[in-house]
Amino acid sequence: MEENLVGRKFGYLNVIALNNEHRLGNSWLCACQCGKEIVLSTIHLIGSKNRRPYKSCGCKQKSRKGKTMKYPDLYAKWADIIDRCYNPDRQNYSRFGAKGITVCEEWRNSFEIFLEWNLANGYDTDLRFSRKDKTKPYEPDNCHWVSIFDQHTNKSKMSNNKSGYTGVCSHGENKYRAYISRKGKRKYLGLFDTIDEAAKARKEAEEYYEKHGIL
């Protein structure tokens, strides 16, 4: 027997009565916060693996439309990060959802909240939206707006990098090699006696690239 949803709340919707009992799924009379009533099926209210649940009678989407049109890039970003984390058919799902990367509930359920956070935390069309720690979720404490250069240097370290520094690896006994890669090109920076010297060379190369745009 299907669960009784009367009295439950889904977003702006309150389920006030069973509209029709059906073997393929009941339908429910819902009162929206805006005052309008709407009939929705169980699947539309609770959602599924491939379907986002309804949160309002449609008034929420209409009120969001102006913001979506004003900030289409942020809306596209919001939809994209949700898709990559929750859609198994997405090409890059293996690098996000399949690895346990999620989107915090407040952002996943509301473009408005996502939008307001970004507008208050460095949103700029010349910058990139990025996670600070690539192993953690999309959430306020783990996201920021950075330059393309900073985003590149913040990429996950290669799994075989044991030095703790991007672009630095051990070489033989007590030696460290430093290098920098940009746009498919790699520049060897030298062989150093200490990891600190190698990391310093790498840092200086990053600063030079950021300033001049060449390796």
Rank of each mutant, 00 (worst) to 15 (best):
D141N: 12
K175W: 05
F149W: 14
R186D: 01
I180W: 03
E139A: 12
C104L: 06
K187H: 10
L189I: 04
P140N: 11
K162C: 04
D133N: 15
K162F: 08
N121W: 09
D126A: 11
E106D: 13
D133P: 00
I101R: 02
S163I: 05
C104A: 05
W107L: 03
Y165H: 14
K157V: 10
K187A: 09
C104P: 01
Y176R: 04
Y138V: 10
E139C: 13
K132S: 03
K175H: 08
K157Q: 13
T102A: 01
G184Q: 07
F129R: 05
S110P: 02
V103T: 04
S110D: 11
R128V: 15
S181G: 10
K183P: 00
L119C: 06
R186F: 01
H144D: 09
Y188K: 05
I101D: 01
N109I: 00
G122C: 09
I148T: 12
I101C: 01
G172K: 05
S159E: 12
L189A: 04
T135Q: 12
I113P: 00
H171M: 10
C104T: 07
C104V: 06
K183Y: 11
E139L: 03
S159V: 15
C169P: 00
P140G: 07
A120M: 08
T125H: 13
R182G: 00
H144Y: 12
Y179C: 02
E105S: 14
Y176V: 02
Y176T: 02
D124S: 13
K134L: 09
K136G: 02
S163E: 10
K157E: 07
S170R: 14
F129Y: 15
N109Q: 13
L119H: 06
N154Q: 05
V168R: 06
F111L: 05
P137C: 07
Q151A: 11
C143S: 07
K185Q: 14
K162L: 14
V103L: 03
S170M: 12
R108I: 02
T102Q: 09
